[in-house]
Simulated scan of single mutants.
Amino acid sequence: MNESSSSPTADHIVWDWNGTLLADNHAVVAAVNVVCSAFGAEHVDLYRWRSVFGRPLWRAYEKVLGREIAQRDWARIDRMYHEAYRELLHTCELAADAPEVLLGWWNAGRSQSLLSMFFHEELVPLVESFGLSSVFSRVDGLRDPAAGGSKAEHLVAHLGALGVDPSETVVVGDVADDASAAEWAGADCVLVSTGVMSREALEATGRPVVDSLGEAVERLAGARVL
Protein backbone atom coordinates (compact mmCIF):
# COMPACT_ATOMS: atom_id res chain seq x y z
CA MET A 1 0.00 0.00 0.00
CA ASN A 2 1.14 3.52 -0.76
CA GLU A 3 0.88 5.23 2.61
CA SER A 4 2.22 8.59 1.41
CA SER A 5 -1.21 9.74 0.23
CA SER A 6 -3.86 10.93 2.66
CA SER A 7 -7.06 8.94 3.07
CA PRO A 8 -9.99 10.38 1.11
CA THR A 9 -13.54 10.58 2.42
CA ALA A 10 -16.66 9.54 0.57
CA ASP A 11 -20.42 9.46 0.74
CA HIS A 12 -20.48 7.93 -2.74
CA ILE A 13 -18.12 5.58 -4.59
CA VAL A 14 -17.88 5.46 -8.37
CA TRP A 15 -16.39 2.07 -9.25
CA ASP A 16 -14.49 1.25 -12.41
CA TRP A 17 -15.22 -2.13 -14.02
CA ASN A 18 -12.40 -3.70 -16.07
CA GLY A 19 -9.40 -4.52 -13.93
CA THR A 20 -11.12 -3.16 -10.82
CA LEU A 21 -14.33 -5.09 -10.16
CA LEU A 22 -13.78 -7.51 -13.05
CA ALA A 23 -10.61 -9.63 -12.97
CA ASP A 24 -9.90 -9.68 -16.69
CA ASN A 25 -6.12 -9.28 -16.98
CA HIS A 26 -5.71 -12.67 -18.65
CA ALA A 27 -8.27 -11.76 -21.32
CA VAL A 28 -6.64 -8.36 -21.91
CA VAL A 29 -3.18 -9.85 -22.38
CA ALA A 30 -4.50 -12.63 -24.63
CA ALA A 31 -6.30 -10.07 -26.80
CA VAL A 32 -3.19 -7.90 -27.02
CA ASN A 33 -1.24 -10.95 -28.13
CA VAL A 34 -3.73 -11.58 -30.94
CA VAL A 35 -2.77 -8.12 -32.18
CA CYS A 36 0.93 -8.89 -31.71
CA SER A 37 0.59 -12.06 -33.80
CA ALA A 38 -1.20 -10.18 -36.56
CA PHE A 39 1.64 -7.67 -36.76
CA GLY A 40 4.46 -10.20 -36.42
CA ALA A 41 5.53 -8.95 -32.97
CA GLU A 42 6.62 -10.96 -29.94
CA HIS A 43 3.93 -11.82 -27.43
CA VAL A 44 3.78 -9.93 -24.14
CA ASP A 45 3.04 -11.03 -20.61
CA LEU A 46 1.17 -9.02 -17.98
CA TYR A 47 4.37 -7.51 -16.62
CA ARG A 48 5.35 -6.22 -20.07
CA TRP A 49 1.89 -4.83 -20.84
CA ARG A 50 1.77 -3.08 -17.48
CA SER A 51 5.16 -1.52 -18.17
CA VAL A 52 3.94 0.18 -21.37
CA PHE A 53 0.24 0.76 -20.67
CA GLY A 54 -0.95 4.34 -20.66
CA ARG A 55 -2.91 6.97 -22.55
CA PRO A 56 -3.15 7.46 -25.44
CA LEU A 57 -3.40 3.71 -25.85
CA TRP A 58 -1.94 3.62 -29.35
CA ARG A 59 1.44 4.57 -27.91
CA ALA A 60 1.44 1.41 -25.79
CA TYR A 61 0.81 -0.62 -28.92
CA GLU A 62 3.62 1.16 -30.75
CA LYS A 63 5.98 0.04 -27.99
CA VAL A 64 4.99 -3.63 -28.13
CA LEU A 65 4.65 -3.76 -31.92
CA GLY A 66 7.89 -1.85 -32.51
CA ARG A 67 6.39 0.36 -35.20
CA GLU A 68 4.41 3.54 -35.75
CA ILE A 69 0.68 3.02 -36.02
CA ALA A 70 -1.23 4.66 -38.84
CA GLN A 71 -4.90 5.55 -38.40
CA ARG A 72 -6.03 2.63 -40.55
CA ASP A 73 -3.88 0.29 -38.46
CA TRP A 74 -5.37 1.64 -35.23
CA ALA A 75 -8.92 0.94 -36.42
CA ARG A 76 -7.86 -2.61 -37.25
CA ILE A 77 -6.09 -3.05 -33.90
CA ASP A 78 -9.08 -1.77 -31.95
CA ARG A 79 -11.47 -4.10 -33.77
CA MET A 80 -9.13 -7.08 -33.49
CA TYR A 81 -8.53 -6.52 -29.78
CA HIS A 82 -12.19 -6.26 -28.86
CA GLU A 83 -13.17 -9.29 -30.91
CA ALA A 84 -10.51 -11.38 -29.14
CA TYR A 85 -11.43 -9.95 -25.73
CA ARG A 86 -15.12 -10.75 -26.18
CA GLU A 87 -14.26 -14.37 -26.95
CA LEU A 88 -12.65 -14.65 -23.51
CA LEU A 89 -15.09 -12.54 -21.54
CA HIS A 90 -16.97 -15.61 -20.35
CA THR A 91 -13.79 -16.74 -18.55
CA CYS A 92 -13.55 -13.56 -16.48
CA GLU A 93 -14.73 -13.49 -12.88
CA LEU A 94 -15.28 -10.76 -10.34
CA ALA A 95 -12.36 -9.69 -8.19
CA ALA A 96 -12.18 -12.06 -5.22
CA ASP A 97 -13.51 -9.59 -2.65
CA ALA A 98 -15.86 -7.65 -4.95
CA PRO A 99 -19.20 -9.16 -3.80
CA GLU A 100 -18.36 -8.75 -0.11
CA VAL A 101 -17.12 -5.18 -0.53
CA LEU A 102 -19.99 -4.03 -2.73
CA LEU A 103 -22.68 -5.59 -0.55
CA GLY A 104 -21.01 -4.34 2.61
CA TRP A 105 -20.93 -0.75 1.38
CA TRP A 106 -24.50 -0.92 0.06
CA ASN A 107 -25.93 -2.61 3.16
CA ALA A 108 -24.28 0.04 5.33
CA GLY A 109 -26.59 2.55 3.66
CA ARG A 110 -23.92 4.14 1.47
CA SER A 111 -24.32 4.82 -2.24
CA GLN A 112 -22.25 3.58 -5.16
CA SER A 113 -22.37 3.52 -8.92
CA LEU A 114 -20.46 2.03 -11.83
CA LEU A 115 -18.78 3.95 -14.64
CA SER A 116 -16.85 2.09 -17.30
CA MET A 117 -15.34 2.82 -20.69
CA PHE A 118 -16.54 -0.62 -21.80
CA PHE A 119 -19.47 -0.54 -24.22
CA HIS A 120 -22.73 0.23 -22.42
CA GLU A 121 -24.89 -2.30 -24.26
CA GLU A 122 -22.46 -5.07 -23.28
CA LEU A 123 -21.69 -3.79 -19.79
CA VAL A 124 -25.26 -3.71 -18.46
CA PRO A 125 -26.12 -7.39 -19.12
CA LEU A 126 -22.67 -8.40 -17.88
CA VAL A 127 -23.23 -6.62 -14.57
CA GLU A 128 -26.67 -8.22 -14.37
CA SER A 129 -25.17 -11.67 -14.98
CA PHE A 130 -23.09 -11.28 -11.84
CA GLY A 131 -26.16 -10.25 -9.83
CA LEU A 132 -24.81 -6.78 -9.08
CA SER A 133 -27.38 -4.47 -10.65
CA SER A 134 -29.25 -3.91 -7.38
CA VAL A 135 -26.21 -2.54 -5.51
CA PHE A 136 -25.53 0.30 -7.97
CA SER A 137 -27.61 3.46 -8.14
CA ARG A 138 -26.46 3.88 -11.75
CA VAL A 139 -24.47 1.90 -14.33
CA ASP A 140 -22.92 3.76 -17.24
CA GLY A 141 -20.74 2.44 -20.02
CA LEU A 142 -19.53 3.95 -23.26
CA ARG A 143 -22.61 4.61 -25.35
CA ASP A 144 -20.82 6.16 -28.34
CA PRO A 145 -17.62 4.31 -29.35
CA ALA A 146 -16.52 7.40 -31.27
CA ALA A 147 -16.60 9.39 -28.03
CA GLY A 148 -14.01 7.28 -26.24
CA GLY A 149 -10.73 8.65 -24.95
CA SER A 150 -10.54 10.26 -21.52
CA LYS A 151 -12.97 9.24 -18.80
CA ALA A 152 -13.19 12.78 -17.41
CA GLU A 153 -16.20 14.09 -19.32
CA HIS A 154 -18.02 10.81 -18.85
CA LEU A 155 -17.49 11.06 -15.08
CA VAL A 156 -18.82 14.62 -14.98
CA ALA A 157 -21.94 13.51 -16.87
CA HIS A 158 -22.31 10.42 -14.66
CA LEU A 159 -22.21 12.43 -11.43
CA GLY A 160 -24.54 15.03 -12.91
CA ALA A 161 -27.11 12.36 -13.79
CA LEU A 162 -26.87 11.01 -10.24
CA GLY A 163 -27.09 14.45 -8.65
CA VAL A 164 -24.06 13.55 -6.52
CA ASP A 165 -21.64 16.16 -5.19
CA PRO A 166 -18.17 15.43 -6.67
CA SER A 167 -16.52 16.68 -3.48
CA GLU A 168 -18.24 13.86 -1.59
CA THR A 169 -17.30 11.23 -4.17
CA VAL A 170 -14.37 8.84 -4.47
CA VAL A 171 -13.52 7.06 -7.71
CA VAL A 172 -12.00 3.59 -7.30
CA GLY A 173 -10.14 2.45 -10.41
CA ASP A 174 -7.05 0.69 -11.67
CA VAL A 175 -5.42 3.15 -14.09
CA ALA A 176 -4.10 6.70 -14.02
CA ASP A 177 -6.98 7.83 -16.22
CA ASP A 178 -9.31 7.18 -13.28
CA ALA A 179 -7.25 9.56 -11.16
CA SER A 180 -7.19 12.19 -13.92
CA ALA A 181 -10.94 11.92 -14.40
CA ALA A 182 -11.55 12.28 -10.66
CA GLU A 183 -9.36 15.38 -10.50
CA TRP A 184 -11.12 16.91 -13.51
CA ALA A 185 -14.54 16.30 -11.95
CA GLY A 186 -13.53 17.50 -8.49
CA ALA A 187 -13.73 14.05 -6.89
CA ASP A 188 -11.18 12.06 -4.93
CA CYS A 189 -9.66 8.74 -5.98
CA VAL A 190 -8.16 5.49 -4.71
CA LEU A 191 -6.32 3.24 -7.15
CA VAL A 192 -5.99 -0.54 -6.98
CA SER A 193 -2.91 -2.32 -8.32
CA THR A 194 -4.92 -5.25 -9.70
CA GLY A 195 -5.29 -4.03 -13.28
CA VAL A 196 -3.14 -3.39 -16.34
CA MET A 197 -1.07 -0.43 -15.12
CA SER A 198 2.17 -0.71 -13.16
CA ARG A 199 2.22 0.28 -9.50
CA GLU A 200 4.92 2.85 -10.27
CA ALA A 201 2.65 4.59 -12.77
CA LEU A 202 -0.25 4.50 -10.33
CA GLU A 203 1.81 5.93 -7.50
CA ALA A 204 3.04 8.71 -9.79
CA THR A 205 -0.51 10.12 -9.74
CA GLY A 206 -0.11 10.97 -6.05
CA ARG A 207 -3.30 9.10 -5.17
CA PRO A 208 -3.47 6.27 -2.61
CA VAL A 209 -2.59 2.90 -4.18
CA VAL A 210 -3.83 -0.33 -2.59
CA ASP A 211 -3.81 -4.00 -3.50
CA SER A 212 -7.48 -4.95 -3.11
CA LEU A 213 -10.99 -3.53 -3.12
CA GLY A 214 -11.27 -4.15 0.61
CA GLU A 215 -8.17 -2.05 1.23
CA ALA A 216 -9.60 0.69 -0.98
CA VAL A 217 -12.75 0.91 1.12
CA GLU A 218 -10.73 0.81 4.33
CA ARG A 219 -8.92 3.94 3.18
CA LEU A 220 -12.18 5.87 3.04
CA ALA A 221 -12.48 7.72 6.32
CA GLY A 222 -15.55 6.64 8.24
CA ALA A 223 -16.06 3.46 6.21
CA ARG A 224 -16.52 0.18 7.98
CA VAL A 225 -13.63 -2.22 7.63
CA LEU A 226 -14.92 -5.09 5.50
Rank of each mutant, 00 (worst) to 15 (best):
H90M: 08
L89W: 08
E87S: 13
I69Y: 01
L65W: 04
D73T: 06
A147H: 11
R72A: 15
V135F: 03
E62W: 04
P99A: 03
E83V: 15
R143Y: 01
S113Y: 01
R143W: 00
S134A: 15
E128C: 05
L114G: 02
L88V: 02
P125T: 08
L88C: 02
R86E: 13
S116L: 02
G148R: 15
E68Y: 10
G109I: 09
G148Y: 10
R110F: 10
L142Y: 10
V156E: 12
Y81M: 04
T91D: 13
V124G: 01
V64T: 11
A98V: 06
S116A: 09
V64M: 14
N107T: 12
A96V: 14
S111I: 06
L155P: 11
E121H: 15
E121P: 00
L142G: 11
Y81Q: 04
W105D: 04
S116Q: 05
V124M: 00
W105N: 05
G104C: 08
T91C: 09
M117R: 12
P99T: 06
L89K: 12
L115N: 02
L126I: 14
F118I: 02
D73L: 05
H154D: 12
P99F: 02
F119C: 02
G149V: 07
V156T: 13
A146L: 13
A152P: 04
V101Q: 07
S133V: 09
L94A: 03
R67M: 15
L115R: 03
V156G: 08
G104E: 08
A84W: 05
W105I: 12
F119V: 14
W106I: 01
S113H: 04
R72L: 10
D140I: 06
E62K: 09
L123G: 05
C92S: 14
R79K: 14
E68V: 11
G66L: 06
E128W: 01
E68F: 10
F130L: 01
E62H: 07
S133W: 04
F136C: 03
A157T: 12
S111E: 12
D78L: 13
A108S: 13
L102D: 03
P145V: 03
A96F: 12
R67I: 10
A146Q: 09
R110S: 11
V101A: 15
R86F: 09
V139W: 01
K151I: 01
R67E: 03
A75E: 15
S150T: 10
H154N: 07
D73M: 14
A84Q: 08
E100P: 00
G131A: 02
F119M: 15
V101H: 03
G148D: 09
V124D: 00
A146K: 11
V135I: 12
D78Y: 13
A98R: 06
V156H: 09
L65M: 03
R110A: 07
A98W: 04
S137V: 13
L103C: 11
S150D: 09
H154W: 06
A75T: 13
R143K: 11
V139Q: 08
V64P: 08
V135L: 04
W74R: 09
V135N: 00
L102C: 06
K151M: 01
R138E: 11
A84T: 07
